[in-house]
């Protein structure tokens, strides 16, 4: 989940080529071009990992400090030229154990999602238009945790900054989907590895809504960075959600057959 992909349009190749052959970045480069170039570079660096599996613990905290915990395990597969395929199987609370969500994300069209309800053995195709909806009651919206394709935003480079001591580019991202719950986002990319360190979200009325920070980045397959911890703080409600990722495994050899509606019924 939350990975990006390489785009091979002529325009983008031009931008990349420009930076590769060492032309000064300032030469006729607008803030929009620079913002897009940063997103493309981050995406390029996180392409080619194939598939992954992990366990996720979500800790939901309300403004009174009361916590509730949810756990799931999940599998993701990169798809050439399109968004990722993801299967999430819930483990706790025990009343949702076995509930499974299959998502096919797409670069430009709406995602496909199926939900398996174990008590009825029923698979339901669900509307993915609820992008702004809360994911299992947390402070993460579906659009925050689904595959972050380049095409889902337009970009503008804002400024340089430091985050946690690391020099960063700050890039504004404006969602292209009218169903998005955000007017804009600001994302901090570290200059060394192009990892996203922090995202500030602004609601449709342009007021600050949430801040997401990433902690404990680790490198896998000597190349791909994954954070152990995501922390989402909602400034309007005082609620937070912490995501703790563990047991990342790459190179599982998943095929499209591991991500089917029929297979959802026996997902464990």
């Amino acid at each position: 989940m939350s990975t990006t992909r390489y785009l091979t349009t002529l325009t983008l190749s031009g931008v990349l080529l420009g930076s590769l052959i060492g032309l000064p970045a300032v030469l006729a480069e607008t803030a929009e071009e620079k913002g897009l170039a940063i997103a493309v570079e981050a995406d390029k660096r996180d392409t080619g990992w194939g598939d992954s599996a992990s366990h996720l613990t979500m800790i939901l905290t309300n403004r009174h400090g009361q916590e509730s915990t949810r756990e799931n395990h999940n599998r993701t597969k990169e798809v050439d030229g399109d968004g990722d395929k993801t299967l999430i199987v819930f483990d706790t609370p025990r009343d949702v154990k076995g509930t499974a969500l299959l998502s096919f994300t797409h670069k430009t069209t709406t995602d496909d999602q199926w939900l398996f309800l174990p008590a009825l053995k029923r698979v339901k195709r669900i509307s993915s238009a609820n992008k702004s909806g809360a994911f299992v009651g947390s402070e993460f919206a579906y659009e925050d945790i689904s595959s972050q394709e380049i095409e889902k935003y337009t970009y503008r480079y804002l400024r340089d900054d430091t985050y946690d001591g690391a020099p960063c580019f700050v890039v504004e991202r404006i969602p292209t989907d009218p169903n998005s719950g955000y007017s804009r986002q600001e994302a901090w990319y570290d200059k060394e590895h192009y990892r996203i360190m922090k995202v500030a979200y602004f609601d449709r009325k342009k007021a600050p809504l949430k801040t997401l920070t990433f902690h404990g980045y680790r490198q896998y397959l000597d190349r791909y960075w994954r954070a152990d911890e995501y922390l989402m703080e909602n400034h309007q409600t005082g609620k937070t959600t912490k995501l703790l990722w563990r047991d990342y495994k790459f190179g599982n050899g998943f095929s499209d057959k591991d991500f089917t509606k029929a297979g959802l019924k026996r997902a464990r």
Binding site: T110, D112, R125, I126, S127, S128, A129, N130
Partner: peptide
């Protein structure tokens, strides 16, 4: 048969 289209099923 089901058609899933935007917010409609």
């Amino acid at each position: 048969l089901q058609l899933t289209w935007e917010q409609w099923l």
